[in-house]
Nucleic acid binder design. Structure first.
Lengths: 145, 145
DNA sequence: TTCTTATATAATAATGGTTATAAACAGTAT
DNA sequence: ATACTGTTTATAACCATTATTATATAAGAA
C-alpha cells in the first residue's frame, strides 16, 4: 500500500504551516505512485492533463517544499536534470551509464562510514549517498550485437 | 611530489591522439597542484593572468577530454556547478551542507557493494561514488553562537 | 625547416534547467 | 466583509554548459 506512505506524507505536511493545494496533492501522489525517479519536467508533463494551467515553477517550488520537509530526495547528475525520489528510506541506486536507468537496491550498514567520516573530518554527519555505475542488462545485450 | 602524477597524466595523454597545448598543460597543472576541487569557472579565473584570451569553452572542452581519458573526475551537486577532482584513486568526500567545503577521506572495501549490485541488478559494474553530508567544524562553531 | 592537415582555440550565440518577480488568487482569522 | 498570509500563474531572468564557426596551431611528413 503506497497510499499509506502518501497519507503519512500529507499528515506530516499538515503539522507545518504548509497548505495543501490540489497541485501539491497531485505532485505528491504522482511521486509516491510512480516507481521511477522522475525529473521536474516529467512530473510537469504527467500532470498537464489534470492541470493544464499549472506552471513549471509550481512543480519546482513544491518539490523544494517537499525536500525541505524531508519527504523527497533530490538526485543530481552531471549532464541532465535532477531527479526526485519519494523513497527516503535507506537505499542506494545503481545507474546505467548508457541509458540512465536507475535501479534501487538495499544494503545495510554504511553507518560505519558515517562514523569514520565524523572522526576523521570532525563533521557533524547528517546523511550519506552512494551510487553504483555500470551497464544495465538491456544495454549489455544491445552492446553485444 | 605531485609533479609525478602530473607527468604520468601528460604521458598517458601522449599515448592517445590528444595534442598538448599550453592551455591544456596549465589546466592540468592547476588541477594537480590545487588540493581543492575547483569548478570550471574557478579554473578559468585562476588562469586568466597567464591566459588572458582563453575561452571558457576551452576549459570545459579540456575538462571533458581529461575526463574521457580517466585523468579527472567530475563531481556534481544539486545547486551549483560541477567540481573537478584530479585524484582518481579510491577515496570519498565529506561535504559541508552549510559552506560547501569538501574534505577527502579514505575508506577501504566498498567493492562488496559493487559485487552485490552486480548480482541484484544484473549490472556490469564500472564504478561507484559515495558522499557523506554534514556540518564542518568551522560551521559548527559558527552555528553555536 | 617548411608543408600539411587534423585538431584546438577564441568569440559568440544558443540551449536548457532552474529561479526570481509580480500580479492575481485562495484559505483563514479577525 | 476585511485583512493577512501563503500559493499559483505567467513571464522574464539567470547561469552553467554546449554548439558553431572562423582562425590559429601542434605534430608528423617531406
Amino acid at each position: 500500500m503506497e497510499n499509506t506512505e502518501l497519507r503519512e506524507a500529507l499528515q506530516s505536511l499538515k503539522s507545518t504551516k504548509v497548505r495543501m493545494t490540489p497541485q501539491r496533492h497531485a505532485i505528491l501522489e504522482f511521486l509516491f505512485d510512480c516507481e521511477q525517479h522522475p525529473t521536474a519536467d516529467e512530473i510537469y508533463k504527467a500532470l498537464e492533463d489534470k492541470f493544464p494551467n499549472m506552471s513549471v515553477a509550481t512543480v519546482y517550488n513544491n518539490l523544494r517544499v517537499f525536500k525541505d520537509a524531508g519527504l523527497v530526495r533530490e538526485l543530481t547528475y552531471g549532464d541532465s536534470s535532477s531527479r526526485f525520489d519519494s523513497n527516503t528510506s535507506d537505499h542506494y541506486h545503481v545507474i546505467c551509464d548508457d541509458c540512465g536507468k536507475i535501479v534501487d537496491f538495499h544494503y545495510p550498514g554504511l553507518d560505519e562510514v558515517e562514523t569514520l567520516a565524523k572522526h576523521i573530518a570532525g563533521f557533524n554527519v547528517r546523511d550519506h549517498r552512494m551510487e553504483v555505475y555500470g551497464t544495465c542488462p538491456d544495454c549489455q545485450k544491445k552492446l553485444a550485437n
